[in-house]
């Protein structure tokens, strides 16, 4: 008996190509924008096509990149994290103050900072899964509480300067490429690998797709969701520490708006705000696009006054062509 359900499709390969394009439409769209922008800007501006400038683009993408990875994890599992920006602020300020006022070794403090970020995420996760409350509101409350804490730590002004070695770490480079950029590349790779090649990663997609189906498949839904908030917390803390190293002092306004930028970057990159759909490849594209467009605008001497408007129009257009897919 040769029974098969596959309908005989003429030109099956073509159909497969079409389906691949549709499947990855958002990702292809974002990367073609990146490429177009790269080519156009290189043609117009000689400053832009300097290797050092291109490396700068990558370095400027690190902070948003870290936070967006965490946000992507949370969104894929069906949540949202509004507290990422304030997490990075609290951790950065706390670490800066501790570095200048205690004798604990800076490396230990950095580690403590990352753990602190993880704890904030854990608290978010437990509150959300335990109360069954809307993630947006819980993390919004967390955001408020953290903003207050940050203000308490800094007293409203910049903190003392951080140790020199910390600044040196920011500037360190291997050949022409900054170490920070290399580390970031590794983080992207690991994050992508975990999401696409581990059970935990696949469980995230399952939970975001349908908690009911995930439960039927014996997946621990609460633990999976909580873990994504912990990851977002740790990565936000890392972003805060990186910002600290960049500026050398604990800036009390650091990390503002990161929550919005990361959510919008993920959304543009094709991550569904309803969970379960999208990939980190898209998020990376969106982060590069944001970092690239602000660099291009600087290179083209677009007045800072118009940059926000330009960025806003891009986001608006991206959102307007957004096609929701709530099939099945």
């Amino acid at each position: 008996m040769s029974l098969t359900l596959e309908r005989p499709v003429v030109g099956e390969r073509r159909a497969e190509t079409v389906s691949a394009v549709r499947r990855h439409g958002a990702v292809l769209f974002i990367y073609s924008l990146v490429v177009i922008l790269l080519i156009a800007a290189s043609a117009v501006s000689s400053d832009f096509r300097q290797p050092s400038n291109l490396i700068d683009v990558l370095r400027q993408s690190i902070v948003l990149g870290l936070v967006t990875i965490g946000q992507t994890y949370v969104l894929l599992a069906g949540g949202i994290d509004m507290s990422v920006g304030m997490t990075s602020r609290v951790v950065a300020l706390g670490t800066a103050v501790a570095m200048s006022h205690t004798l604990i070794h800076p490396y230990v403090l950095i580690l403590l900072g990352l753990i602190g970020g993880g704890l904030i995420g854990f608290l978010n996760g437990r509150l959300i899964t335990g109360l069954g409350a809307a993630p947006f509101i819980v993390t919004l409350g967390m955001m408020g509480a953290l903003a207050g804490t940050a203000l308490a730590i800094s007293g409203g002004g910049p903190t003392d300067a951080v140790p020199d070695f910390f600044l040196a770490a920011y500037d360190a480079s291997m050949g022409p490429i900054p170490v920070a950029v290399l580390v970031m590349a590794v983080i992207w790779l690991v994050a992508w690998f975990v999401l696409s090649r581990t059970r935990f990663g696949r469980n995230i997609y399952a939970v975001g797709g349908s908690t009911a189906v995930a439960r039927l498949a014996a997946i621990d839904v609460r633990r999976t969701q909580t873990s994504t908030y912990v990851i977002a917390g740790v990565l936000s803390a890392a972003a805060g520490l990186f910002l600290l190293a960049r500026s050398g002092v604990g800036d009390p306004s650091l990390g503002g708006n990161l929550e919005f930028q990361s959510i919008v970057a993920a959304a543009i990159g094709g991550i569904s705000l309803y969970g379960g759909r999208g990939s980190l490849v898209g998020s990376l594209g969106a982060v590069l696009l944001v970092s690239l467009s602000s660099n291009v605008m600087n290179m083209l001497h677009v007045s800072a006054y118009y940059q926000d408007l330009a960025l806003g129009v891009i986001v608006l257009l991206g959102v307007a062509v957004y096609r929701p897919r709530r099939s099945m």
């Binding site: 919005f260 959510i263 919008v264 959304a267 705000l273 806003g312 129009v313």
Partner: peptide, 29 residues
Amino acid sequence: LITWRKVPPFVATFAMLIVVGGCRLAYTH
């Protein structure tokens, strides 16, 4: 954006936040 394009309200209104904020900045420098 929300009713016709089915954009999640958060994203739609946030995009407007950036655009209108940008308008203000462009207008006032």
